[in-house]
Design a protein around this nucleic acid. Structure first.
Length: 283
DNA sequence: ATCGCGTCAAGATCTATCGT
DNA sequence: ACGATAGATCTTGACGCGAT
């Protein structure tokens, strides 16, 4: 009955935007130190050598080579050296947002992972650093790609190393309310849902609900619902032989409207999409 | 001053129907 | 399946208000 935390994370991540502020590779000086710093951006530290001290949200860490730390935006943090054997690390500053709010901080527990494939990560960081300087047209796009890669690796490893209990989200609407909504949407895709019905589920005024929903997921409720519907439509078109009119029915849409909506989202009519998909599958 | 929530009204999008 | 249209519904931004 319960959609778990990671389901919510997935919906959330599907709408995430990343942006890189800087990336570099340095051996820090003996005076590397900052206390109770509250950054507007996230940081990755990929430790390669040395020792040092880190404090995130009151928790202290002694990062080791081979670990990747995520210092979240908007969370108080401190760091300093502890000896002459200072850190050599790859690092970057970046933001991850959905709608207006930061993907603030999913991680309730350890803010680091053991990197499973250090060579891979090292080369991704080098790529980032190079791309930062690149004048190529598509460099900004590639940067996002690399960043998405690193973040994805980080999240997957967090779950692998600590379990998905550690992923939790902050925001104006709490997780359980959001879960209620997303569960309801999934279970009722085939019916007509109104913003009003949804907002009643969490006892919010429709307009306010709209606003909160959008800040959390980056899409308005109806837009989000339609996106879900189109996902399901695509799946049904490719994996079943149900006639288009029936699929429309399953999704709670009238045939004529379904066709138009589908075309708007995929630039193909449902039957076109099906025949094209079939053709590619049979290659 | 900021947060949590509500209200209103304009503009955008959706939906039902009819015609092709 | 597409096009046009009009009425219904949704979206959004601005503003208000009481509680931190």
């Amino acid at each position: 009955m319960e959609t778990n935390q990671s389901e919510l994370m997935r919906s959330y991540l599907a709408n995430a935007q990343v942006s890189l502020l800087m990336a570099s590779h340095t051996k820090v000086g003996r005076d590397w130190r900052d206390l109770d710093f509250l950054p507007e951006f996230n940081r990755f530290y990929f430790i390669r050598e040395g020792e040092g001290w880190l404090k995130i949200k009151g928790k202290e860490y002694a990062p080791k080579p081979g670990q990747l730390f995520w210092l979240p935006a908007g969370v108080e943090q401190s760091y300093s050296t502890v000896s002459d054997d200072t850190f050599r690390k790859y690092w970057c500053h970046f933001t991850v947002t959905v709608g207006d709010i930061h993907l603030l901080q999913l991680l309730s527990a350890p803010h680091f992972i053991e990197v499973p494939d250090p060579e891979w990560l090292e080369s991704r960081f080098r790529e980032l650093i190079e791309l930062m300087r690149s004048r190529e047209l598509a460099a900004p796009l590639r940067i996002k790609g690399v960043l998405y890669d690193i973040i994805s690796m980080y999240l997957d490893e967090t779950v692998r190393q600590y379990g998905d209990g550690e992923l939790q989200m902050a925001g104006p609407m709490n997780v359980s309310k959001m879960n209620t909504i997303l569960e309801y949407i999934d279970a009722h895709l085939s019916e007509t849902m109104t913003v009003e019905t949804l907002s009643k589920l969490v006892h919010f005024h429709p307009n306010y609900f709209m606003h909160v929903f959008k800040t959390m997921l980056g899409d308005s409720p109806i837009h989000y619902i339609n996106k879900k519907r189109m996902d399901k439509a695509r799946q049904l078109l490719l994996t079943t032989d149900q006639p288009v009119s029936e699929i429309a029915g399953v999704l709670g849409l009238e045939l004529y409207y379904f066709s138009r909506m589908f075309k708007k989202w995929t630039s193909m009519s449902p039957s076109e999409y099906r025949s094209q998909g079939r053709r590619t599958q049979n290659v």
